[in-house]
Design a protein around this nucleic acid. Structure first.
Lengths: 339, 339
DNA sequence: ATGAAAGCGCTAACAC
DNA sequence: GTGTTAGCGCTTTCAT
């Protein structure tokens, strides 16, 4: 059915070895130009494609990378990590074996085992949001990188968003629009983004010489209803801020509903800036939400490239996490304060 | 490093053959119970795991399935297809090689070629939403199934949502709540869901003996702003409906904003029911959106199971697409009409 | 009840 | 310039 090296050899009249040599462009082989041509032609006619199982077995390189995601479900925008990874892998002739553990930790071990059984060249361990993780020891069996995640021991190369810097960028945008009373709708999760974005908010205020008001800084559950409550808490005050920086887009969505319930208008009365750029929200909301885009695609690409070079040239760490900037995506939720 | 069959053989004092026999439980082999036990123990001690590349090469079965998605990006809830597929694959000791073409058709051929090079046992071709597709001819090279997609020729087993029936279920829910003036916020795309959901809407109206009003049935772009415009068009009328069935959740989101801009309240003044159950929207919106859940996880599972049995027992079709019901997910956007 | 040998499709030393 | 040979790690006749 599918043509093999042997078929090409027989049909061209040369040995399997010679065929392999020319098809792989093995350097330092003296092969007659005619031979090269003939072999190439025959291979073409037969639509020959190397069997990667056989190739992998022989070369000890499967051309396959294991991608372990803790969840591709809950946070949709995270799929761009996979997209970036896939594109970078394709560039290098590699492919992704995918396992999503969906928060079931017992699937981690099993997934890695399955990867190892298939002789993956390396593994990327991707979290859905910036987290400190403790991957199973079996991850050590192959070169690995962490995405949106890091360990305390820094034993793997890892990429994470720059929480502090990006939060500063967001608040600076509000300052630039003329706001002097800026609130922060924060979250209560025990994750790096919590402290990071809060710190960025405060730093930006300080840099702009703006007052920090404890009452404008509130923490709630990091989803829509939490955002609603947080926004109400801040906006119900007489000295309410004219702009709100939100921990994420879901909270910003809740803030939209709060603003409307108060008879106010987003951008006109209250400027809002989110975080994540979850397009369903940021583009779906009315007016469009200005927000910080998580650099998922870029991290995915970086992950594979880093992994690939690690495979070619193993090294031992420790590795400082590399921080990725979140670009500001301007839409229509930021205006100038009234009066 | 990793233990091989040979290691187990040497350490246990038996031949590779015998070891293979016991580890694979080859039927019809008379092997001493003691031997079995020893071999098993040694394999355990060495943490032996078969090399699937070698196994695959020999058995002509890679234990790997190619998953080609036209886009895992744009429609986040579709990832549940992958989740269902992965779970079903894991059950059968198989794994998914993933390629997402993200609307770049040239990646289809390349992806399939890459699958074939890696000797996948089968391929699932998954669309992001119910579509008529024309997969590249190379798909024929292996058993394949279609998800959320079908071809005119019905050459592959395929699964699609039951658009008509599910729309009827949605409207029936509105009827059950007491509504007699029910509008439809439809879309303008040339896809099966367009005609299907519209037909379901009309059928449900007829079944309930309710009047069909051309003015209550409007078509717009199937995203948030389209939903907003559509809702305004219907709601601005004096004889406005008390309930709205929306083509999808994104349009429903737009409808929420329209209702609010008119000083009305969702559920109280206008009941809304969506389609898709995109959780970011349906759970993020205030009040929560009642909607029809697309059976993505189930279709993913079905796809792999069907594919696996096709691999074991090839057959030729044609195959009638199988239709999956969309379950109703009740939240808080449906109330009884006033007065 | 166990094992030798061939071979899946390929690559890489090492001849000649 | 080209080919022989020996595996990569495994399964599978076929002997014994």
């Amino acid at each position: 059915m599918k043509a093999t090296l042997r078929d090409v050899a027989e049909r061209s009249g040369f040995s399997i070895t010679t065929v392999s040599h020319v098809l792989n462009d093995v350097p330092g082989k003296r092969i007659a130009p005619d031979t090269r041509e003939t072999i190439r032609r025959v291979a073409d006619e037969l639509a020959y494609r190397p069997n990667q199982l056989a190739q992998g077995l022989r070369r000890q390189r499967s051309g396959t990378i294991g991608f372990l995601a803790d969840s591709i479900l809950t946070t949709p925008h995270a799929h761009k990590v996979i997209s970036g990874a896939q594109d970078a892998a394709a560039e290098a002739g590699s492919m992704l074996l995918l396992v999503s553990t969906d928060g079931r930790p017992e699937l981690e071990e099993r997934g890695i085992t399955a990867f190892l059984d298939r002789q993956v060249d390396g593994i990327v361990y991707a979290a859905t949001y910036h987290r400190i993780v403790t991957p199973p020891p079996s991850l050590r069996a192959r070169p690995a990188v962490l995405l949106d995640a890091r360990t305390d021991a820094a034993e793997y190369p890892s990429a994470v968003p720059d929480e502090v810097g990006s939060a500063r960028t967001a608040v600076a945008e509000l300052v630039r629009a003329g706001h002097r009373r800026i609130g922060y709708l924060g979250n209560v999760d025990d994750i790096p983004a919590t402290a990071g974005r809060l710190a960025g908010y405060r730093q930006a205020l300080a840099e702009a010489g703006l007052p920090w008001q404890p009452a404008w800084e509130v923490a709630e559950a990091s989803e829509s209803t939490g955002g609603y409550r947080a926004a109400r808490a801040v906006l119900d005050r007489p000295d309410r801020p004219t702009a709100l920086f939100c921990f994420n887009d879901r909270m910003a969505l809740g803030a939209y509903f709060a603003v409307q319930d108060l008879g106010l208008a987003v951008a006109l009365d209250v400027s809002i800036i989110g975080f994540d750029d979850q397009e369903i929200i940021s583009e779906g909301v009315h007016p469009g939400l200005t927000t910080m885009r998580l650099p998922h695609y870029e991290m995915g690409q970086w992950g594979i490239r880093t992994l690939l070079s690690l495979i070619d040239a193993p090294s031992d760490g420790p590795y400082d996490p590399v921080h990725f900037d979140c670009p500001l995506v301007r839409r229509a939720s930021v205006g100038s304060p009234r009066g």
